[in-house]
Design a protein around this nucleic acid. Sequence first.
DNA 1: TTGTATGCGTTATCAA
DNA 2: TTGATAACGCATACAA
Lengths: 332, 332
Amino acid sequence: MKDVAKYAGVSIATVSKYLNGGNVLDKNKELIDEAVVKLDYQVNVMARGLKTNETMTVGIIIPSLTNLFFTTIVSKVENLLLQKGYSTIICDYREDEKLEKEKLNFLLSKNVDGIIMVPSCSEDNELINKVNKDLPVVLIDRNIEGVNCDVVLTDNINGSYDAVEQLIHRGHRRIGIICGPEEHYTAVERLTGYDRVHEDYNIARDKDLIRFGDYQIESGHQEIINLMKLAEPPTAIFVTNYEMTLGSIMGINELDIKMPDELSLIGYDNLQLAKIIKPSLSIVTQPMDEIGETAARLMLKRLKKDMSKHPAVYRLKSRIIIKDSVRKLNEG
Amino acid sequence: MKDVAKYAGVSIATVSKYLNGGNVLDKNKELIDEAVVKLDYQVNVMARGLKTNETMTVGIIIPSLTNLFFTTIVSKVENLLLQKGYSTIICDYREDEKLEKEKLNFLLSKNVDGIIMVPSCSEDNELINKVNKDLPVVLIDRNIEGVNCDVVLTDNINGSYDAVEQLIHRGHRRIGIICGPEEHYTAVERLTGYDRVHEDYNIARDKDLIRFGDYQIESGHQEIINLMKLAEPPTAIFVTNYEMTLGSIMGINELDIKMPDELSLIGYDNLQLAKIIKPSLSIVTQPMDEIGETAARLMLKRLKKDMSKHPAVYRLKSRIIIKDSVRKLNEG
DNA sequence: TTGTATGCGTTATCAA
DNA sequence: TTGATAACGCATACAA
């Protein structure tokens, strides 16, 4: 900037003011513009940060960088924040709660301006609340009891409810579900939807039909085999995330089960996959781009010190798409 | 730090020196340690950076955040660099070359200390070389003609050669291959391996058996169908990345082709997938963790101004795993 | 070994 | 509108 000032024949203060949107004589504007181009001037983010106490950096913490659901959201967030000049430091904690805390501390030590995170299910609210006092925190996908920061969720309960209801409408009564880990936030919600629709339609639940996986491919594969090997297997199965959906399709192929004749299936999350599978797969899709967009906008708003409606809770709608993998059961 | 100095009753310079590994009287060490804990002191990365001219930040640029191969590598890199105190700013350019340049400039404007990137195949060497003059650049997965920076690659040619050779050893002569985009660095290499082994074994190539996809699920699905609908379909097919392998398995299911009786298949990249598919899938796996580790170590070395053996080229070995999806063809 | 003093590149204040 | 100047928090050269 010193060089620019010298080249343009004005003071440093004038350059700084102009570059930050201040008013300057037209003559000087031109001079400075020219100098900036000529000298290829770039602001020193460190020096600016030292003064403004802002790093223009947002930390993102997710459970895994190899989970398509999270990385799709992160990709959206990253691109939106970058458009506003913000860097994102993306950390994954590999589903390890100890690592989660480490990454959080790391981001804090790097003086990020805000944090967007998908917390582990046992993350404690005190820590989050404490962090949230110093800088904006936006939670994604999972809420934490007693936490008072912004959060962007999907309506897992209704999504699950609607999916199972579609099966019921088509005459299914023995409906299996492959859930995520028993204490997991979204897993609990999705199971709740399944429970409620059974209650509402007065259908007794069979414990054997409710399986808990770990949201990984292999458990989807294993649990669908367990379900289909029951003495009285389900006529339809609802699988509650992408990885397990993938696994269950492998299982169906392995057992040579005809879909939808011998089994109706509704999967989760990946539209692309749904189109490729034959018969075309019915799924519940979460609006990943919208989730990312909402989280990014919310964060940008907070970064501008706009704390209106804090804490904000967004419940985005998931969408259910019924395709050929579901058939109507003949009564009797 | 001023506060720490005051609390400990020493000068700022003493605190700074101690905190940076300098020698200080034991008595003062204790005092400073106590003050640091008491005041929960954290260095101001901006102020430090302003002095040292280092941001302790490495930029990572990849084509896509939704590609498992890249995100696995990135996850490894991120974790290793963090252990040394480095942040990573991860950018994806969504396979868009224009966006790629934007992201590169963005990272430069953020004064990152180094850049690790998977370049688009048409990235120009001049730009990279220019950047590489100012800060260390490590290329991953794809090399660029005429570029003089460090690069970490997989031996695609040999990996492909070995895979196809295994098929030949088992009596296959009509071997299909589903490649990536025609100009793509790794796609060209993997096709070269296919070509060479055909030459070495004196097997004529049939153009119809060589298909070009785009490394996405759908093209794997489409091309395997094209291959199997040939008047004289191949007895074995080699699919050259993960997404297309996924797609081709969908296609096999759709066409109800019995594997390996009617078709032998070798896929790519995902060990987990290979274990789940029935019959168990033969694959070529790239050492993703090793790639990430090598790139991270190389970057750390360059960041320490150790420029020995520059530019370094690493060619990591891929591994071929033959499982039940490949069968021995009866001669005659 | 310790402390004083300087400067890193900005932004912001205030006088001109 | 402009410019001189202080301050941000730290690292370091140099003097003590």
